[in-house]
Design a protein around this nucleic acid. Sequence first.
DNA 1: CGCTATCTGATAGCGCCACTATCTATGATG
DNA 2: CATCATAGATAGTGGCGCTATCAGATAGCG
Lengths: 199, 199
Amino acid sequence: MSVPTIKFYVREGLLPPGELTSPNQASYGETHVQRLRLIRALLDVGGLSVAGIRGVIEAIDDPRRPLHTVLGEAADQVVPRYERGDGSGIAEARKRVAELIEARGWRTYEGSPAAESLATALAALEEVGHGRFAEILDAYADAAERVARVDLEYVAHQVAREELVESVVVGTVIGDAVFAALRRLAHVDASDRVFGETP
Amino acid sequence: MSVPTIKFYVREGLLPPGELTSPNQASYGETHVQRLRLIRALLDVGGLSVAGIRGVIEAIDDPRRPLHTVLGEAADQVVPRYERGDGSGIAEARKRVAELIEARGWRTYEGSPAAESLATALAALEEVGHGRFAEILDAYADAAERVARVDLEYVAHQVAREELVESVVVGTVIGDAVFAALRRLAHVDASDRVFGETP
DNA sequence: CGCTATCTGATAGCGCCACTATCTATGATG
DNA sequence: CATCATAGATAGTGGCGCTATCAGATAGCG
């Protein structure tokens, strides 16, 4: 962690500046180190952009912010993936997403970034000729619900607001990476059992 | 989808060149369009790099390749995230991953990219002060296993090798995005029930 | 007290990556 | 036949995450 990098983060608003003890000497505390670790985790493991991290950190640091909107902020920053034009079957995909939300009774506003990114992914699947993937969407949703329930339990253990908020962010962002890796391990296992030659 | 972009993909080896009917006229078929859609899906939704897509496509196009290694190739390209130095508790995290694999009876080689990226994520969680996250790892693994099983069933429906391989790639890469979005929707729902004010 | 090493803040630059603009030669097209 | 689009090649662009450099100021040592 080089000094110029740290100063770059300060400039970018990711890290509060150190307390100046003299015009050319600043002192940094444990909170700075902690914040740096958070930044690196979101950057390296979570794959967020610097701008995205700024948004998340502002949400964390704003004590007026309702708790459950901070989760939204974190989630939104991870998913800046609505490139795909609208020429394609995105409208139909949106409808399917709305139906799923309805069927699940999820309290989500349609048009939320998560819903939008799900629609994008489904539309992409359709375009690539894997529309049948939608058939197993329910199994995915089951698993997601299960994971989300556990996540919430975990997060609820925190008491201090700041810790809670950070838990939410970390859990959301790094949880994705954890699950993706686990899913991959399970794939390798399952694939090996079905197609593999190692008996 | 501009012409120069397509020519760029050809240069990069993502797309086979069109058949030349004359020195300044090439004809592209449905397979080219399909391939382009695949490229865009992996790029926009899957978040792969061009180099990563090249690796995946080479794996798809190589008929000698054992099926279950193609999945590995796709998986490896999605997860180029072992930045985080080794000064941290990565060794301990690796041990925890090995134990998890052992406990699950997963047929995975230790040190696989997925295992490595899981270890990285766990180490990052530890560093950020969320080592307790490991407690809910089993619930994550359960969900991952469940999803992986469904994925394999879905994929096994394909008969032609080429289609099967593409299913695997698409399912692996875009499946991540689908699950992440679903998890986020479920989070919003769960969070709203616990912390929200909308009754 | 002087001298060098080190820190701060500011500005400009670098390297990578996914394109994109421009150029020439060539043949399609009205 | 004149114009215009296309192939292929080379060079350039813009965004992003840093990184190098510079002046000014002071800490710390002899």
